[in-house]
Simulated assay, not measured.
Amino acid sequence: MAFESGDMAKAYWSENVRLMLILLSVWFVVSFGCGILFVEQLNAIRVGGFKLGFWFAQQGSIYVFVCLIFIYVWLMNKLDAKYGVRED
């Protein structure tokens, strides 16, 4: 990875960290919020015979985490292309 200047490297890592914080915040809200904080409200809804709060606590946060991994890869490929450090 060769950047032309230190400013480009700082901008790249700044965007990378911002992206990670956003995605981790989404995962936190889904896992902690839906699985613990809002479980009573979500349990009023049933999906496939299971209470939605229970589903988020047991399965939903894992599915969201896996989806966020794919989103991170896609967005990082765009970021790499933007800064010219793309891997082919």
Results as ranks from 00 to 15, higher is better:
10 K>Y: 05
74 W>K: 05
53 G>F: 02
50 F>K: 15
49 G>L: 10
25 S>A: 15
44 A>E: 12
60 G>M: 03
44 A>F: 09
2 A>M: 14
70 F>N: 05
31 S>F: 05
20 M>L: 12
6 G>F: 05
88 D>C: 06
54 F>P: 00
75 L>T: 03
7 D>T: 02
48 G>E: 06
42 L>G: 07
71 I>H: 01
69 I>T: 04
45 I>A: 14
87 E>T: 09
21 L>Q: 09
19 L>T: 05
7 D>S: 09
18 R>P: 00
55 W>A: 12
74 W>N: 01
81 A>L: 08
55 W>Y: 12
60 G>H: 07
41 Q>Y: 13
19 L>P: 00
53 G>E: 02
34 C>R: 08
12 Y>K: 13
26 V>W: 01
51 K>P: 03
3 F>V: 00
58 Q>V: 15
82 K>W: 04
83 Y>L: 06
5 S>D: 05
66 V>L: 13
41 Q>K: 14
64 V>A: 09
51 K>T: 14
84 G>Y: 11
86 R>A: 10
33 G>H: 04
50 F>I: 15
72 Y>W: 10
57 A>L: 15
88 D>R: 07
33 G>P: 04
61 S>G: 12
14 S>W: 07
72 Y>F: 09
80 D>L: 01
15 E>Q: 11
71 I>E: 00
1 M>N: 09
43 N>F: 10
29 V>Y: 02
18 R>T: 12
18 R>G: 06
17 V>Y: 05
66 V>W: 04
82 K>I: 04
15 E>L: 12
67 C>D: 03
36 I>M: 15
40 E>Y: 08
72 Y>Q: 09
86 R>H: 04
56 F>V: 13
76 M>K: 10
79 L>E: 00
1 M>E: 08
68 L>S: 02
3 F>W: 01
37 L>G: 08
11 A>P: 02
86 R>W: 02
5 S>H: 01
30 V>I: 13
63 Y>E: 10
8 M>G: 04
24 L>V: 08
65 F>N: 13
50 F>H: 15
